[in-house]
C-alpha cells in the first residue's frame, strides 16, 4: 500500500553493475517506501535477477557505479549475511539444493543469526520447533520437509514454498521475490500469494519480479516497473501490467522513445 510520507526503505540511484566485465545493469533507479509493493517486469535477460542478486550481495556481480541506500545505510558496504540480518531477503528464482544440510537445522541457524543481530536470545531446537511449525501453516507445508536436506528432491513448487517459509521466519524489511510464481500451478500460486499477502504489512516492502500478470491478481502491486537493458524503462500502476500482458513490451519501447514516463 502507498502510505503518504512513509520512510524510504530502499533507494537505488544510477546503479551500474557487471559480471565478468560485461555490463548488465546500466543506470538503474528505484525508490521503495515502507508498505509498498513493487512489481518489476521485463523481457528475459533484461537484468532482473542480476538486480536482485546485486541487492543481496552475490560476489560474482561487481557494482561499477551508483549507490544503494537501504534504511539509511550504504548497502554496498555490507557482506551478504549482514544485508540479510539487517532485513534484505531474496527469494531465489532457482533455489539451490544443498544435500546433507537438514532444512530444519538450516532454518534454525538462519533464524538465530538474525535474532543475535537484534540482540535477542537464540532459540534452542525445542523452542524453534514451535516457531517453525506456526510458519509452516502460512505456506501450507508438511513438516516432513523439515527433516529433509535443503530443497533436495523438492518439486519446483515445494522449493518456492520453502523460500516463502524462510521469508516468514526471517521477517524481512524488504523482500525481493524473483519469479516466485513461475512454474507454479494455480493452487500453489494461491498458497504462495496468500503467504506473501499474510506477511506484507505497512512496515515492510516487497519487490515482485515476474513475467505474469496472473500473480498480480493475487498480490496487487502499487507500482509496476518495466526493465530492459539493465534499466527501468517505465513505471506505472497495476494497469500497466495488464497492458503489458495485452500488448507486449514493444509498445513500451516506443513510449519510452517518446519520453512518456509514468509516475
Amino acid at each position: 500500500m502507498i502510505i503518504e510520507n512513509s520512510d524510504v526503505v530502499l533507494s537505488v540511484c544510477d546503479l551500474t553493475a557487471e559480471v565478468d566485465g560485461i555490463p548488465i545493469l546500466n543506470g538503474l533507479n528505484l525508490e521503495v517506501r515502507a508498505g509498498e509493493i513493487h512489481a518489476i517486469m521485463g523481457p528475459n535477460g533484461s537484468g532482473k535477477s542480476t538486480f536482485s542478486k546485486v541487492l543481496a550481495g552475490h560476489p560474482d556481480y561487481q557494482v561499477t557505479g551508483g549507490e544503494i541506500v537501504f534504511q539509511g545505510q550504504n548497502l554496498l558496504e555490507l557482506e551478504p549475511e549482514e544485508r540479510a540480518r539487517s532485513g534484505i531477503f531474496l527469494a531465489f528464482q532457482y533455489p539451490l539444493e544443498i544435500p546433507g544440510v537438514s532444512n530444519l537445522d538450516f532454518l534454525r541457524v538462519a533464524y538465530n543469526s538474525r535474532r543475535r543481530h537484534h540482540g535477542l536470545e537464540e532459540l534452542d531446537a525445542f523452542d524453534f520447533d514451535e516457531v517453525v511449525r506456526e510458519k509452516l501453516e502460512i505456506v501450507k507445508m508438511d513438516d516432513r520437509f523439515l527433516g529433509r536436506s535443503v530443497n533436495e528432491g523438492f518439486s519446483g513448487g515445494e522449493k518456492k514454498r520453502n523460500e516463502i517459509l524462510q521469508m516468514a521466519l526471517l521477517e524481512p524489511k524488504l523482500a525481493i521475490l524473483d519469479e516466485t510464481d513461475s512454474g507454479l500451478d494455480i493452487d500453489a500460486l494461491k498458497i504462495v500469494a496468500n503467504g506473501v499477502n499474510h506477511l506484507s504489512n505497512p512496515d515492510n516492502s516487497i519487490i515482485l519480479i515476474t513475467h505474469y500478470q496472473r500473480l498480480l491478481n493475487y498480490i496487487v502491486p502499487d507500482y509496476v516497473h518495466v526493465m530492459e537493458g539493465g534499466r527501468i524503462l517505465t513505471t506505472g500502476d497495476k494497469k500497466l501490467a495488464l497492458e503489458l500482458e495485452e500488448r507486449g513490451y514493444d509498445w513500451v519501447r516506443q513510449e519510452d522513445a517518446t519520453e512518456v514516463v509514468a509516475r
Binding site: A56, E79, P80, F89, F92, L96, I98, F106, S113, Q166
Partner: peptide, 14 residues
Amino acid sequence: TDEVFYLQSRGIDA
C-alpha cells in the same frame, strides 16, 4: 560459491 551465497543470504556468516 552459489551454495555459500545461498546460506549467507539467509544471514549465516561465510
